[in-house]
C-alpha cells in the first residue's frame, strides 16, 4: 500500500510513477512528483519505481485563466 496525495492506493511490484499517473488519469503536463519528500525529475517518471509504503505527492502546478 502507498499513499498518493494522502489517499491510500494499492501497490504492485514494479510500479512506476507513470503507472500511478495513468491509473489516476493525471494528464496535466505540469506535474511535480515527490516520493517520500524527494523530488523526481519529470523525465524519470516512466522509469522511477515506487517502493511499497511510499508517500507519493503528485503536484499539479496551478494553471488556468
Amino acid at each position: 500500500m502507498i499513499t498518493v496525495n494522502g489517499e491510500p492506493m494499492d501497490w504492485s511490484d514494479g510500479m512506476t510513477i507513470r503507472d500511478i499517473l495513468d491509473y489516476k488519469r493525471y494528464v496535466f503536463p505540469l506535474l511535480s512528483v515527490w516520493i517520500d519528500d524527494v523530488a523526481v525529475p519529470r523525465d524519470k517518471f516512466d522509469t522511477t519505481r515506487v517502493p511499497d509504503g511510499s508517500k507519493v505527492q503528485v503536484i499539479h502546478m496551478i494553471s488556468g485563466g
Binding site: N5, Q57, H60, S63
Partner: peptide, 8 residues
C-alpha cells in the same frame, strides 16, 4: 482547483 482538490 488543482491545489485544493487534487494536490490536497
Amino acid at each position: 482547483i488543482f491545489m485544493d482538490r487534487v494536490n490536497k
